[in-house]
């Protein structure tokens, strides 16, 4: 139930510029890499470039996860199953979560997305699709059954990534429509309006 008396609100900085830049650059790079992989020209030079950008972005994010601002650090959104279940129990309520940073569920989706992206970059770099022009830069250093398997995994992972991105967007829409909570603006401005208890 929403309180009818006007609640006290305050504006809090939730996402630092590194997190925000990372997020939106990743959106662009992922869209580019995915689109080029699926519909791009047969000479995949630009797909490779977008992949390298993603590798760099994920690399920076991994470092920032240890040395960054509070909400960017992995330790701030690594929650045990108890916390996740407790959070999920409140999820159906029609109130904004007013969570600062990644909530227990969102935290795990970040870990999942980062893990999938690392796997996707790794398999892409080790792929040898036997066309002699789109061979990953690391393919020559791994056995041929690994470079073969990498091509297969790279395709499977691309579908998994698309599903996870779809779930990410669905969750944002759910918070917006059902819980009346805007998650997009904070990722742009860095600031979130929080109700105080």
């Amino acid at each position: 139930m929403r309180d009818t008396t006007s609640p006290k609100t305050r504006v809090i900085k939730v996402w630092d510029p590194v997190v925000r830049s990372f997020h939106w650059l990743l959106v662009l790079a992922f869209a580019g890499a995915w689109g080029l992989g699926e519909w791009g020209p047969n000479q995949m030079t630009w797909h490779f470039y977008f992949g390298y950008v993603i590798a760099g972005l994920v690399g920076v994010r991994l470092i920032w996860g240890f040395v960054g601002t509070r909400n960017a650090r992995f330790t701030s959104f690594l929650f045990g199953p108890g916390k996740v279940v407790a959070y999920l129990r409140h999820l159906p309520s029609r109130d904004p979560s007013h969570w600062i940073g990644h909530n227990p569920m969102g935290g795990w989706s970040v870990f999942l997305m980062l893990a999938l992206l690392i796997a996707q970059v790794a398999t892409g770099m080790m792929s040898d699709p036997k066309d002699y022009i789109n061979v990953g830069p690391l393919a020559q250093y791994v056995p041929s059954d690994i470079s073969d398997l990498s091509v297969k995994l790279h395709h499977i992972l691309s579908t998994l990534l698309l599903i996870v991105v779809g779930m990410h967007i669905a969750a944002i829409l759910f918070y917006r429509r059902w819980k009346g909570e805007n998650l997009v603006t904070p990722m742009i401005t860095g600031k979130k309006v929080i109700e105080e208890d």
């Binding site: 020209p41 047969n42 000479q43 995949m44 699709p129 036997k130 066309d131 002699y132 022009i133 789109n134």
Partner: peptide, 8 residues
């Protein structure tokens, strides 16, 4: 090479 990929 592109024609290889196009068919693969």
């Amino acid at each position: 090479g592109g024609s290889c990929k196009g068919c693969h």
